[in-house]
């Protein structure tokens, strides 16, 4: 299979349309789930899909090490390359990884200001100009509406899309009017797309509960629990 087929056949296409003009400007996306259900896997697959299409992705990992983030990309790529019998797999991988940069922060070292400073470092020195910033491990429990809005505005000013992951807690059953669970029930308005991961018998469902892009809202995708890969 060629790289182009891989892009076209990606089940994530419903979320990440090929014509970016159909997306709202500077989209903010959110993936929510309980621990261990595959939030990072989804973020990495969204990132990988964008990288395959030549977009640059900055992966920000809060609280996890660089090796772990790298390993996620390696694993996801391996599944894609082997599963779809990709031609020139090692060349494509080399090309892809040029489109990715990882920044890891200790929880205490992360702030909007720090991220902005780092992004400016990258952009002004022409080191790396991201189209998408993926933020894994952001603490929504400690964040209020203003601080999340602040992040959105910063990303909009830098002209990048943002994708976040949020951890749901079993014991907290608060929900927003739109059905977005805690800890994001008060910030759901900030996001254009929200996906909730729900375990089912032999799969994990990706429930797209909100999407400003018409095609995706209400759709449900599957996640193979053994590989954490999205399937139709």
């Amino acid at each position: 299979m060629q790289k182009e087929d891989l892009i076209n056949k990606n089940p994530l296409r419903v979320l990440n349309p090929l014509a970016p003009e159909s997306l709202p400007d500077h989209r903010m996306g959110l993936v929510m789930a309980r621990a261990g259900l595959g939030k990072t896997a989804i973020l990495v697959q969204i990132a990988m899909d964008s990288m395959l299409r030549g977009q640059k992705v900055l992966h920000v990992s809060i609280g996890e090490g660089l090796e772990k983030a790298k390993a996620w990309y390696e694993d996801v790529y391996k599944y894609i390359a082997e599963g779809f019998h990709l031609e020139n797999a090692s060349e494509v991988e080399e090309e892809l990884m040029r489109n990715r940069m990882i920044m890891t922060f200790k929880e205490s070292a992360f702030s909007r200001l720090k991220l902005e400073e780092r992004l400016n470092d990258l952009v002004y020195q022409n080191i790396f100009r991201p189209d998408i910033v993926v933020v894994d491990g952001y603490d929504f429990v400690q964040a209020d509406y203003d601080s999340v809005m602040d992040l959105k505005e910063m990303m909009a000013a830098m002209n990048v899309q943002g994708w976040f992951s949020a951890l749901r807690h079993r014991e907290d059953d608060r929900k927003s009017a739109a059905g977005v669970p805690a800890p994001c029930h008060e910030v759901d308005g900030v996001f254009d797309t929200i996906i909730i991961l729900q375990p089912e018998k032999d799969a994990i469902l990706l429930n797209i509960i909100k999407d400003e892009y018409d095609g995706a809202a209400g759709k449900i995708l599957n996640l193979d629990p053994s590989t954490m890969m999205v399937r139709d």
Partner: peptide
């Protein structure tokens, strides 16, 4: 010095894989 370090690597045709920041 993170900015200057990354800049110096970039000038050397370096590909930055990632950064780790703590304290």
């Amino acid at each position: 010095f993170q900015g200057s370090i990354m800049g110096s690597l970039n000038q050397r045709r370096g590909m930055i894989i990632g950064t780790v920041e703590e304290a």
